[in-house]
Nucleic acid binder design. Structure first.
Lengths: 341, 341
DNA sequence: ATACCCATCCAAAGCGCTTTAAATTTATTC
DNA sequence: GAATAAATTTAAAGCGCTTTGGATGGGTAT
């Protein structure tokens, strides 16, 4: 069923039917009701490509997920997108997903822009000194970044949590508990979020005049396996950590395994603080959460980011960039305690 | 830059330019080269909506992810989609993602179909007696299911692993090791895959004339937390299990925690076999994998499913359904051993 | 009754592409 | 060299929608 068929059936012009359905004022209320009823009955849906052609809008938002050579698909992306899609379905947008391998990244973004299949895009996992920002500015495609690029001074829209601050506070807590050898098991530090978390960690140690040991700092894709091997090798180190600061729940599961394997108890022998993105598969709550954590819902961030982008798209051109900084409170769980003498 | 501008610049008709770019035979080779060169230089990309309107194809595949009230986003979906998207980018397709809440499921599928925004869809997480199959058949939209509905006798395209067989073999291995009280920690058994896995488990017990204890069978979203609480309560049971069969790696991480918390050692005190979907965040390999597992790559399944669907779309109508059954070999790891007397 | 105003509704153009039907040019045959 | 066939190219229609620029007609003021 298309517009023509529907309007023929109603004995009206396509113009009137189209206007009735899109709530234009210049159509009689009785007519509008009649049209809407018929549309419902015949299950009429305007062809999205035709609408797109006519309006120049696609009502589609692109999400571009960077893939590096390790080919790891981070569950965080899924959770963020689940949040975003709630906003999309409320606002009548569709979601188009693209995986962009690092080596072809620029051409992928250019192609998306020139193909005109999306009205805007969400940029995931910004790096330190990320070339995508200026590229997208050049391409004139509205975008919102999940995260920031601290090294970029230009104006752009982003939503992020306060990574530096969160890890500063987490480190401070461990220091206050008497820990001196605190091992940081971080995400890839070419990524901006990880870089800022490390800053928070370093700043807190510095503030308390504690030594910074490079051999206590790990960085990489935070898989369970990597969390395990980082923690295992840290525990075998000459400078033996009494506490771990882990950038993700999943990585912390590996850390927990390493701690157990070393015959130690988490919470008493060794303290652990994680950052908890509140992934639905990895809830860390309850009366006493398993892990002490800085906490910030990535699903919520996804929903907010989507709404910001939709705002951006609907604003007249040259709109001021939107930004949102989320706080990640520190939640006490069972995995931290005073250092053992 | 659009077709008209490009052809004006070249002094050719739109027809010829379009044909040159789409490799139609009726255009002079020299002309074709000239056109392609110009297109490259001006970074011309045909407008996808216009192409779609003209051809009636959208070159887009829809993935519809079911969301139930627990709002859990399974990492498996992400991994499957990562695989599928490889096929899409090779074949020039886009990927459109929709989250479908259970209560509005039918209308969402209907809307997708009538809006015509996709050429076909991938159906995730089929249930036992899944109404979506007949719905999609009625809607005449090509589709491939990741999984099957064993209760549906009609012909449709699917890709699945041999769930029953895999869990039969896994159970058999545990029985051979002397285990009698084997606890099944399964996914939601309204989902077909989980239902079939349970069949395999029950069949193996039955084949060896072992008792089937309902209190040794758990079913639910296989999160870490649920895996933990299921295993913890099983271990506190009067019929104390000496082995666990866990439907996912993530769930098994919770089971592992429960085992440790009970002061037991995995592999010696308690055996565990999991199903390993080879999620990139949860590798279970190495010389001796952490867990003994039935193994099947869900990313690979995603890629195959995508190719199947593209085949289906490009075949003349009334094409025979495509099906693919993947085997899930049993891989020995460190988590299994003979029962302790 | 006349002029003017709204409230409604409609015909047709246009979005950027593909494809049919036809025209034009070039090559081949006798 | 005329007739015919083959190779190229083009004009124009059409995909399904929105939107511009009128029509149409009843209501109101004069």
């Amino acid at each position: 069923m298309n517009l023509k068929q529907l309007s023929d059936k109603l004995g009206l012009s396509q113009t009137t039917v189209s206007r009735a359905l899109n709530d234009y004022p210049e159509v009689n209320e009785a007519t509008r009701e009649r049209v809407k009823k018929a549309a419902r009955e015949h299950n009429y849906q305007p062809n999205i490509r035709a609408t797109g052609l006519a309006t120049g809008k696609s009502k589609t938002i692109g999400h571009v997920i960077p893939m590096n050579s390790t080919e790891v698909f981070n569950p965080i992306f899924g959770e963020f997108i689940a949040g975003a899609s709630q906003a999309y379905s409320r606002c009548g947008y569709e979601l188009s997903l693209t995986m962009a391998h690092e080596d072809a990244e620029e051409s992928i973004y250019r192609e998306i822009a020139s193909k005109g299949s999306v009205d805007g895009i969400i940029v995931h996992a910004p790096r330190v000194n990320d070339p995508r920002i200026s590229l997208l500015q050049e391409l004139q495609l509205p975008f919102v970044i999940h995260g920031r690029d601290s090294s970029n001074e230009t104006d752009y829209s982003w939503i992020d949590m306060n990574n530096r601050r969160a890890f500063f506070r987490a480190t401070k807590l461990l220091i206050d508990l008497g820990h001196k050898n605190i091992c940081l098991i971080n995400g890839r530090e070419t990524l901006n979020f990880a870089w800022r978390r490390r800053q928070g960690y370093v700043d807190a140690l510095t503030a308390d005049h504690l030594d910074i040991h490079p051999e206590l700092m790990y960085s990489g894709d935070l898989t369970e396996a990597n969390g395990y091997s980082a923690a295992a090798s840290a525990l075998a180190n000459t400078i033996k950590p009494t506490a771990f600061l882990v950038s993700s729940y999943v990585g912390a599961l590996g850390v927990r395994r390493a701690i157990h394997n070393a015959g130690l108890e988490m919470g008493s022998d060794v303290s652990v603080i994680i950052h908890d993105d509140e992934l639905s598969y990895f809830e860390n709550d309850g009366d006493i959460p398993q892990f002490t954590a800085t906490r910030s819902s990535v699903r919520d961030a996804g929903e907010r980011a989507a709404l910001m982008l939709i705002d951006l798209i609907n604003q007249p051109n040259g709109a001021a960039p939107l930004t949102k900084l989320l706080d990640a409170p520190l939640v006490l769980g069972a995995s931290t305690g005073p250092v053992k003498k």
